[in-house]
Amino acid sequence: SNREKAKQAFKELLRDKAVPSNASWEQAMKMVVTDPRYSALPKLSEKKQAFNAYKAQRE
């Protein structure tokens, strides 16, 4: 689905920018907000969900 693709793109973005798994949401956003993939997930709640999944995978 498109939403799954968007989630993957967002997680790839976090990986590409080397966002550490112990980063806070605010720290992570400063690192990725300028990338076009930041807008892949329109809802903030979805971004946070993908971010938390990313962190869980990295730990």
Rank of each mutant, 00 (worst) to 15 (best):
Val33Pro: 06
Ser45Trp: 05
Arg37Ser: 04
Glu4Tyr: 04
Leu13Val: 03
Ser39Val: 07
Ser1Phe: 15
Arg3His: 08
Gln8Ser: 06
Pro36Arg: 09
Glu59Ile: 12
Ala56Arg: 11
Ala9His: 04
Phe10Ile: 08
Arg37Ala: 09
Lys47Glu: 04
Met29Tyr: 13
Trp25Leu: 09
Phe10His: 11
Gln27Glu: 15
Gln27Asn: 10
Asn52Lys: 14
Ala9Ile: 14
Tyr54Gln: 00
Lys48Leu: 15
Asn2Arg: 07
Gln8Trp: 02
Phe51Lys: 06
Ala18Lys: 12
Ala6Gln: 13
Ala23Tyr: 08
Ala53Met: 05
Leu41Arg: 03
Lys55Met: 06
Thr34Phe: 06
Lys7Phe: 15
Lys43Asn: 11
Pro36Gln: 08
Ala56Trp: 08
Leu14Trp: 00
Gln27Val: 07
Lys48Phe: 05
Glu4Leu: 09
Met31Tyr: 07
Lys43Val: 04
Lys7Glu: 15
Ala40Met: 15
Ala50Gly: 04
Thr34Ile: 02
Gln49Arg: 11
Pro42Asn: 02
Glu26Ala: 07
Leu13Cys: 08
Gln27Asp: 09
Glu46Ala: 04
Glu26Ile: 03
Phe10Val: 03
Pro36Glu: 11
Ala40Arg: 07
Ser39Ala: 13
Ser39Met: 12
Glu26Asn: 06
Phe10Asn: 14
Leu44Met: 12
Pro20Lys: 01
Ser45Asp: 11
Ser45Asn: 13
Asn22Gln: 09
Ala28Ile: 02
Arg15Trp: 11
Met31Ser: 11
Ser24Gly: 06
Asn22Tyr: 03
Asp16Asn: 00
Pro36Met: 02
Pro36Ala: 10
Leu44Ser: 10
Ala6Ser: 10
Pro36Ser: 06
Lys43Phe: 02
Lys5Ala: 10
Gln57Tyr: 01
Lys17His: 09
Gln49Glu: 15
Glu26Met: 07
Ala6Asp: 13
Pro20Phe: 00
Ala18His: 14
Asp35Lys: 00
Glu26His: 09
Lys48Val: 12
Glu4Val: 00
Ala23Glu: 03
Lys17Tyr: 10
Glu4Ser: 10
Ser24Asp: 06
Ala18Tyr: 01
Ser45Ala: 11
Ala9Lys: 09
Glu26Asp: 13
Glu46Ile: 00
Asp35Leu: 00
Glu59Gly: 09
Asp16Gly: 02
Ala50Glu: 09
Asp35Met: 01
Arg58Ile: 01
Tyr38Thr: 11
Val33Gly: 14
Asp35Glu: 06
Ala23His: 02
Ser24Phe: 01
Asn52Trp: 05
Asn2Gln: 14
Pro36Lys: 07
Lys48Tyr: 08
Ser45Gln: 10
Asp35Ala: 01
Tyr38Gly: 05
Ser24Met: 02
Phe10Gly: 08
Asn52Ala: 12
Lys30Asn: 11
Met29Asn: 05
Val32Thr: 12
Ala50Ile: 10
Ala23Arg: 03
Ser1Asn: 13
Asp35Arg: 00
Arg37Phe: 00
Leu13Ile: 00
Val32Glu: 10
Lys30Gly: 09
Arg15Gly: 09
Ala40Ser: 13
Tyr38Cys: 06
Ala23Thr: 04
Ser1Trp: 05
Arg58Gly: 14
Lys47Asn: 01
Glu59Ala: 15
Asn2Gly: 09
Val33Lys: 15
Asn2Ile: 04
Asp35Pro: 00
Tyr38Lys: 09
Asn2Cys: 03
Asn2Glu: 12
Gln49Val: 09
Ala53Lys: 10
Lys30Ala: 12
Leu44Asn: 04
Lys55Trp: 00
Glu59Trp: 03
Lys7Tyr: 13
Arg37Asp: 01
Glu46Phe: 00
Val33Thr: 13
Met31Leu: 10
Ala6Ile: 10
Ala50Asp: 07
Lys11His: 10
Glu59Lys: 14
Ala23Leu: 06
Lys30Arg: 13
Lys11Gly: 10
Met29Cys: 09
Ala28Gln: 07
Leu41Asn: 05
Ala53His: 04
Lys55Gln: 09
Asn22Val: 04
Ala6Cys: 00
Ser39Thr: 11
Gln27Leu: 04
Ala18Phe: 03
Gln27Ala: 11
Trp25Cys: 11
Met31Trp: 00
Trp25Gly: 10
Val33Tyr: 08
Ala28Leu: 01
Leu41Pro: 07
Lys48Gly: 01
Arg58Lys: 13
Met29Gly: 09
Arg15His: 14
Asn22Asp: 14
Ser39Pro: 03
Asn22His: 10
Asn52Pro: 06
Asn22Pro: 01
Gln49Ala: 15
Ser45Tyr: 00
Ala9Leu: 12
Leu44Ile: 11
Glu4Phe: 07
Arg37Leu: 02
Lys43Glu: 14
Val19Thr: 09
Gln49Gly: 07
Phe51Trp: 02
Lys7Gly: 07
Gln8Met: 05
Glu4Gln: 09
Phe10Ser: 08
Ser45Cys: 04
Ser21Leu: 15
Val32Ala: 04
Lys5Asp: 13
Lys5Tyr: 10
Lys30Trp: 00
Lys43His: 07
Ala53Asp: 14
Lys17Phe: 10
Ser24Gln: 05
Glu4Lys: 06
Leu13Gly: 07
Lys48Gln: 10
Asp35Trp: 00
Ala9Thr: 15
Ser1Met: 06
Ala9Val: 13
Ala50Tyr: 00
Lys5Ile: 10
Ser45Glu: 13
Leu44Gly: 06
Ala50Ser: 06
Ala6His: 09
Ala23Asn: 07
Leu41Glu: 10
Glu4Cys: 01
Gln49His: 05
Thr34His: 14
Phe10Met: 05
Arg3Cys: 14
Phe10Ala: 11
Asn2Lys: 11
Glu46Tyr: 01
Gln57Gly: 12
Gln57Asp: 15
Leu14Val: 06
Lys47Ser: 04
Val32His: 12
Ser1Tyr: 14
Asp16Met: 00
Ala53Thr: 11
Ala28Glu: 05
Ser1Pro: 04
Lys48Thr: 04
Met29His: 07
Phe51Leu: 04
Trp25His: 06
Met29Ser: 11
Pro36Ile: 02
Pro20Gly: 05
Val19Gln: 06
Gln8Pro: 05
Lys43Asp: 15
Lys11Val: 15
Asp16Ala: 04
Gln49Lys: 12
Val33Ala: 15
Pro42Met: 10
Arg3Lys: 15
Lys5Gln: 12
Pro36Thr: 08
Glu12Ile: 03
Ser1Lys: 15
Leu41Gln: 07
Val33Met: 15
Ala28Phe: 03
Gln57Cys: 10
Ala9Met: 11
